[in-house]
Write a protein that binds this DNA or RNA. Structure first.
Lengths: 126, 126
DNA sequence: AATAGGTATATGAAGTTTACACATAGATGT
DNA sequence: ACATCTATGTGTAAACTTCATATACCTATT
């Protein structure tokens, strides 16, 4: 096929972020494994995982609800306390299993990246 | 806000892949840093990076053209050899710089994941 | 010389995921 | 009464991936 200069619709390439798809899921599950919490309360601890750009609260709530639909967490409304009602989430046994599979996936990802990094080091040595 | 059961349009959560956004870019750049090549020739070596599902050839060609537009690689048509004409790609100095920034990004990603993995190990110890 | 298969490059379109803005609402302080 | 903080959520466009498909040249075979 001959060279061709059609317009390109896709992304402009920069900025590249190298984000990990749905990384928020294992982060949320881990935090809930440590202790039950409501969404708002998870914003700050989540930010410790260095999300860039900053963690989107909307995404937290959506992800929690989604995971609840799949039985990975359960929630109950907590009134009584000060301020508006909060939905308190707890990890389920299923959720633990899901976290475990996430851990396996992430371990593989690290290996993938390490492989590339090592190969990069090799060509840099020359 | 009260509990609410609206239909959910978003993804069904499973399967989760934890793919790294545009991971194909640093892989291609690294392979080209090792030695110039045409797209078709890169399919097999790319698969060594354990893409799941398998590397999409279409994505390879698109990504190479895109990176060329940004000056990270240059190509020239190679006839003469057996088979149809091939577009031979070479890394540019700019491309090396882009690869370097990718390496930094990926190093950060590894750190993010390691942080999570360690924290997971901690709660598993109990 | 037709045709099948391999090599090589590329596009179309639908589905998934993220980013950012915005909406809702109760509680608290002035 | 009003603003502000806490808390939960939705709408939507842009970005990204996936899978299917198109094109075309070359080589070997019948």
């Amino acid at each position: 096929m001959a060279p061709n200069q059609k317009a390109e619709k896709q992304h402009d390439l920069l900025p590249y972020k190298g984000k990990i798809e749905r990384f928020i899921e294992p982060c949320l599950l881990l935090l809930l494994a440590e202790k039950p919490a409501h969404g708002y309360e998870l914003i700050e601890p989540l930010s410790q995982f260095d999300f860039e750009p900053n963690v989107d609260p909307g995404q937290i709530y959506r992800t929690l609800r989604r995971m609840e639909k799949h039985g990975f967490v359960v929630s109950n409304w907590e009134t009584g306390k000060a301020g508006p009602a909060r939905r308190r989430y707890q990890l389920t046994a299923q959720g633990e299993g899901f976290l475990t599979s996430w851990i396996k996936t992430l371990t593989k990802r690290v290996q993938m990246i390490e492989k590339l990094l090592q190969r990069y080091d090799q060509i840099m040595e020359r």
